[in-house]
Write a protein that binds this DNA or RNA. Structure first.
Lengths: 281, 281
DNA sequence: CGTATAAATTTATCATTATAATCACACCCC
DNA sequence: GGGGTGTGATTATAATGATAAATTTATACG
């Protein structure tokens, strides 16, 4: 009872966060523009230093701003980076870890659209990059370590492709499953295993895809990635099943109480690297 | 000079944020579990209260935790909500606003997969819900206001469908474009206009889809949504072009310096509603 | 027995001070 | 004269202490 009316407690710092967001929108601030300084915000919002600070921290965690010290320093509008978006998305899946099946169902749907979106946007440089990545796995691996590296490079091939996708929405949606595959512990384990067929067939498909793209034959490209994804799914799920079986056979002490995965909570190195804007690309 | 080595300045609060994330992962904490209290964290991490607080604020902004006052209060692990994830994703597109074309290209790719994923998961309750939503637009609108409401309900139909998608990755990817359509100002303007054909054909497609789903005919369902999306895209883009034309004809004072859209920065009401866990324990 | 009030606990906010990073500009050595 | 170097102003970052607000638990009252 009492003032149980408004049900929740809008915290001051949250309110300020939102106010700042609105401020950004209202004033049409672009990335790189500066927000008022701490002192001014304190006066303008009539809040204490700590509170304003927390509000800014919230925005910073969302990747919307970035602060710098020194003269002319302060909070600067920031275009949230791909990495940050991926990390944030990863958090969403921290307790809802998708399965390999889930991921490939999404990829099967998205990749043809990705290829279609690439029509006419790939230049010589792009083909150069793609071919360059492929050299890492144009041959059987010599060690388990190389095996794993090859898998990552295979995924990087797709990331390069995605970098050229002119549809930002589609690009994000394609980038994320790839990131998942690179981060999920289940996949790590799969990638540690020899899988000659996956490499050989993956390489073949990518080679064919490149050829089709070079010729501008989008329809054929779509068909190829469809088969590519289907094949990869089959092979990955087979390996997954195999691993699971050997896992049950081996250890019955079973630490598998939860099916959640580490994902983003570990790799958060972004904050330690350069400020996000970096070199652009 | 000095230790200019690590190039960047890992802020204390960021470091602590990361440490806490690791703590969560290491201790296999589940949603609802409590983190150590402020004081304990201060002692354990040897940081000041404000710094710890900022770190927690960062996690809270990402939707990973939630804090409560009072005895037994503190920071609680939180499964990041759909809403939160959408808002965060929206920020990513704040300066990269996709076009209507972009959105529908994604939807055309995703919706058949969505329908496919629904095989066998829709119960009577689901059909009931879907049919109920459809009643809002089974008739021509009587006013512009109803017009707009009908459009939203049409989108809600899809959201209901998505709620039943067992693939969390696919569900997120489908949910987001719908959210975009509901939030983008361009769409708001389009939805304010009479569009009898969009309503009629949309309703027809949804009716057919429902029928196919009831019969378990997934293949037909996929075909229907494919056409549905294609039709919607055509009609939406036509209206968009029309609006743009009339816009240029009308006002040459042109406030269209930037093509970015408001998106998430406005609707951040989540913080004001109930705590995220909702259902609670 | 139920309801309202009091108490205890814990976060939320405020205020103040000291520290560290950054930039501008003058300065000095070569 | 030129380029590195130091000094000071500026601004965020961090620490500390005190007070307010909110929520749970316990208790007293009708």
């Amino acid at each position: 009872m009492k003032q149980a009316r408004q049900s929740a407690k809008p915290k001051r710092s949250e309110v300020i966060s939102e106010a700042l967001k609105e401020y950004i929108a209202q004033h049409h601030l672009k990335p790189g523009d500066r927000l008022p300084q701490e002192q001014e915000l304190i006066k303008a919002l009539d809040a204490s230093k700590g509170t304003v600070r927390e509000a800014l921290k919230g925005l910073e965690a969302q990747g919307l701003i970035q602060t710098r010290t020194g003269p002319g320093g302060g909070a600067f509008i920031n275009e949230v980076s791909d990495d940050r978006a991926m990390t944030l998305l990863g958090n969403y899946f921290f307790f809802r870890s998708p399965t390999i099946h889930d991921i490939y169902e999404a990829r099967k749907a998205l990749w043809p659209a990705l290829v279609k979106s690439l029509e006419g946007v790939l230049d010589d440089d792009a083909f150069q990059q793609l071919a360059s990545v492929m050299t890492f796995y144009d041959h059987p691996p010599a060690s388990l370590e190389e095996e794993r590296e090859q898998r990552f490079k295979e995924l990087e091939f797709h990331l390069v492709l995605i970098d050229y996708c002119p549809n930002p929405l589609l690009a994000l949606m394609c980038r994320f499953p790839v990131r998942l595959l690179m981060n999920m512990t289940v996949c790590q384990r799969i990638y540690e295993q020899p899988n000659p067929e996956l490499r050989r067939r993956g390489y073949d498909y990518q080679r064919q895809l490149l050829e089709a793209l070079r010729e501008g034959d989008i329809v054929r490209g779509c068909k190829i990635v469809s088969e590519h994804m289907q094949t990869a799914q089959t092979l990955m799920e087979a390996k997954e099943a195999m691993l699971e079986k050997s896992f049950f056979k081996a250890g019955a002490d079973s630490d598998i109480d939860s099916n959640r995965d580490y994902l983003a909570l570990t790799g958060y190195a972004e904050a330690k690297r350069r400020p996000e804007q970096s070199g652009g690309k």
